[in-house]
Amino acid sequence: MSVASLARGAHGELDQLYIETRELRLQGFLLFLVSDCVLFSSFIFAYLYLRNSGQGWPPPGIQRLDVAFAAWNSVVLFGSGATMHYALENFKHGKWMAYMWFLLATIVLGAGFLGGQAYEYNHLIYAEHVTWWGSGIFGASFFTLTGMHGMHVFFGVCYLTVLVLQSSAGVYTRGKYFGITAGTLYWHFVDVIWVVLFSIFYLL
């Protein structure tokens, strides 16, 4: 039974079918996050493997990463996770304006994190001359992993923006808001990946 074809059913049936297919979509989405998690894990494995391949870390000629700025930037991203959580909570309780404000705050904080990362890349590339391709395994693992994460954040910001537009157009109702749940799950996932990346790149 296609979710798409069910959504085209008559109006009275829609909510019942939504409840039935919601569980399928939720599980599918969670499994997608699991496989995405494996993608990150593989690159994290590659990073740890290369890091321990015997040249010391950071490799000769490269300075340690700046923890202070990264800590601040991480808190920005983690804060966006908290605001997203409250956006969903408020939506569940029907507090429309609070939902919108928390959602917008999430977008701003997410974009702020991306800006911070752009600043950090800029600093690394132009001040310390560390590049993706020119700095050996350090550049390879750092820019690949953080860049992949940054892409996820970027897609997340785009998705949340779509959520704002959809919500204004009245797509989601109090009984039918899987899109917001999926957005929250995805955003939390992106945050949690950053917890790991922050720990292994800056603290380890």
Partner: peptide
């Protein structure tokens, strides 16, 4: 998905010279 990561790494190493596997550049 794990294979996808390996393929992506091989692809970017071949196309952009980002060292993951080339022992001459510290890869493995």
């Amino acid at each position: 998905t794990a294979l996808a990561a390996a393929l992506a790494a091989l692809f970017i190493e071949r196309q952009f010279g980002v060292p993951f596997f080339d022992p001459a550049k510290g890869g493995s």
